[in-house]
Amino acid sequence: MGAVSARPDPPPAVLDVAGLSVRTGDHALVEDVSFHLGAGERVGLIGESGSGKSLTALAIMGLLPDELSASGHIRLREVERDLLSASETERSTLRGDRLGMVFQEPMTALNPLMRVGAQVAEVLRIHGAVSGREAATDRARDLLAAVELPDPERIARRYPHQLSGGQRQRVMLAMALANGPDLLICDEPTTALDVTVQAQMLKLIDDGVAARDSALLFISHDLAVVATVCDRILVMYGGRIVEAGPTRALLTRPRHPYTEGLMAASDLEAVDAAGRLPTIAGSVPPDGRFPDGCVFRNRCPRGDDACQAWPGWTGEQHDGVACWYPSGSGREAGRG
């Protein structure tokens, strides 16, 4: 993976993931995932449920369930140790400080027995950003105001169940951004929200990472949302990155048949003569039992014997594709 770049060196990576694999017993759920994120870069990770997006995020955060094992390398800027070999103590000093995360369902991510202001203040105090209860409370209120919660003084004294879904998600964002993290990971942060609330949330995420020059890894299955927020996109399927590229190029000239399928299925205005939407044949195999070789070959219109071997990566790490017959290569002619 990752041919030598001819362009000038990219800015030093905030996060460098190399050859990340996540396994459960006998088979891989995430395999050989490599990418990097620069400061201020906003990168989207897209794919269907079961493609390994969330596991990749959890591996970076060091939050994988015990029964899963991760291998490969995850390096964070200015951290000596590889995050995967770091102890839990070392990782817990990074989480909430250098690494922030917003989960899909804030009701399960927030502590139901603690007032939300105290939860934001806790993040600040644990990592020593402020000392003293009063200073932390003041700063927490400022952070709640920064995510545009009305009357932050009052909201800070509320419990999570007393807030709406959009308000809870804002509290999550305030906590994730509290210590100005180098990396913010958002895992489907707006999937459970109404569209107008989603729009506000996306803007807050965008402003929040811009103000702190944080790198953003934005996970979603909604292509339009990712395209609105991100500069670059990684497409994941079957635990592998199958295509990567700058947002506009990737979405105007997709190369991998899976990317093409996702885009076709998202466009509700493109229908055939009978008014039917294009779909991707078949479905994501249950329990992560993807075929060997190319993981997409059993659903792919171009699949043939060559696809029984993994195609390998063509192009640069941040702009390439893993396919025997990518669109635009000339090789896909007569297929699909």
Binding site: A199, L202, K203, D206, A227, V229, T247
Partner: peptide, 27 residues
């Protein structure tokens, strides 16, 4: 109108719209 504007679409995103554009007519 706000509801229509707040839904991100590929078309608008590729035309350069950013998250702030979704709030154009937020109710």
């Amino acid at each position: 109108r706000a509801l229509v504007a707040a839904v991100p679409t590929l078309r608008r995103a590729l035309a350069g719209a950013d998250p702030a554009a979704l709030l154009g007519a937020a109710p």
